[in-house]
Nucleic acid binder design. Sequence first.
DNA 1: AAAAAATATATTGTGCACAATATAAATTCA
DNA 2: TGAATTTATATTGTGCACAATATATTTTTT
Lengths: 138, 138
Amino acid sequence: MTESLKLSSQYCFPLYSAANRVVRAYRPFLKTIDLTYPQYLAMMVLWEEESILVGQLGKRLNLDSGTLTPLLKRLECKQLVSRHRGSEDERERLIKLTSRGRALQPLAEEIPKQVAGCMKLNLDELEQLRQLCRKLLD
Amino acid sequence: MTESLKLSSQYCFPLYSAANRVVRAYRPFLKTIDLTYPQYLAMMVLWEEESILVGQLGKRLNLDSGTLTPLLKRLECKQLVSRHRGSEDERERLIKLTSRGRALQPLAEEIPKQVAGCMKLNLDELEQLRQLCRKLLD
DNA sequence: AAAAAATATATTGTGCACAATATAAATTCA
DNA sequence: TGAATTTATATTGTGCACAATATATTTTTT
């Protein structure tokens, strides 16, 4: 057996597995506000920005239109966002937070703390993990 | 704006994004042997074990039968594995590496090194990242 | 042994994630 | 200005990831 192909030798498998685990950890909390994790990420950006173009949102979340277009349609169905065209450029799609979307924010307020409470890592370790992931993403 | 809901304050978003990035980094290399990343993980276990029950494989990969059953059927279609029943227990599904599956291993040998070469993290940082992810997964 | 409970895997349905491609509008160039 | 190119988003198709549930077999209990 070659060492390099042993599961226990892999660096990326734990990362892949940890990301799955974390999204799963969010699920019960996000269920209370009827959002998936990627939807929650999009809503976080909108709570910050009020409105944003699909392309800009994609840059913030590292997701493309193939992922975002259907996701944003689902948020539109729930009346959390509205989808408009750019005023100058008709190709652009401007996503706006609705009042219903804005009203969701206070209900999400406690979720980060609650999830952190379920984590096996302390704040220091979470910070290290974040730095390493950010460097990987550079 | 509440600090706790800012995207830049999140600990898990970089982890989620980094995992997507890493799977994407593997893709061109895995394409040469016609495997997806989760399929590659399953094959790695089989290269180690030769045969394994679905449940045991799920424990190694942190995946359930809802994910593994269709994945293993696809590997079966490619004739990389065969799917049998347990000899004692008819409920069990025993997955066996085929000769074709075994023949794939040498072609995968160089992939871990190649992917590591694309990474923005050095070996030390990869090791730290792995340790943190493992602790999170405990 | 028959009924009940537990176990292993499969199925169903939803929502990503992404590559590849399509569409349509804007920009650049001839 | 008209054609070619670029840009922004949408569409299509594949394969996860998982919750919820179903099925079938085994084990335990009565």
